[in-house]
């Protein structure tokens, strides 16, 4: 599933401009607790979160997460967006709840770290 697919499925808006929308995302992880993301997420995955502070982007950076979707129309501040842009981590925002965001992506075949890739 590409970032472009994900953007379409979620009706999401891209907050960053330079990322490659054809990057393939194999896994997804949803959490608001960054230590859990650091402990259990896998590389090259998508992070779905309701937190918008700078540490979310830092977490993605150190854990080699490819992109972040913010749910419930929550947007990070401009400094955080600029940091993500500089680190080449695409950011998206969707109006959907975290529940429906996960559900829709799961329905279309995205999985977490467990189980086979679909």
């Amino acid at each position: 599933m590409t970032l472009d697919d994900i953007k379409g499925i979620l009706g999401a808006l891209a907050l960053t401009g330079r990322g490659d929308m054809e990057i393939d995302i194999g896994r997804a992880y949803c959490a608001d607790l960054m230590s859990d993301v650091l402990a259990f997420s896998v590389t090259n995955s998508l992070l779905i979160t309701g937190l918008t502070n700078a540490q979310v982007v830092r977490t993605a950076e150190v854990a080699d997460i490819k992109a972040i979707v913010f749910v419930q129309n929550k947007r990070p501040d401009i400094q955080t967006i600029a940091m993500a842009e500089a680190k080449n981590i695409p950011l998206f925002v969707t109006e959907l709840s975290m529940f429906d965001t996960c559900g829709r992506l799961y329905e279309r075949g995205l999985r977490s770290q467990m189980g086979p890739t679909v």
């Binding site: 997804a28 992880y29 949803c30 975290m98 529940f99 559900g103 992506l105 999985r111 977490s112």
Partner: peptide, 13 residues
């Protein structure tokens, strides 16, 4: 034992 993403995916299904 499932991650939240997987649990939600199954509840959604």
């Amino acid at each position: 034992g499932l991650p939240a993403f997987e649990l939600v995916g199954r509840l959604y299904a």
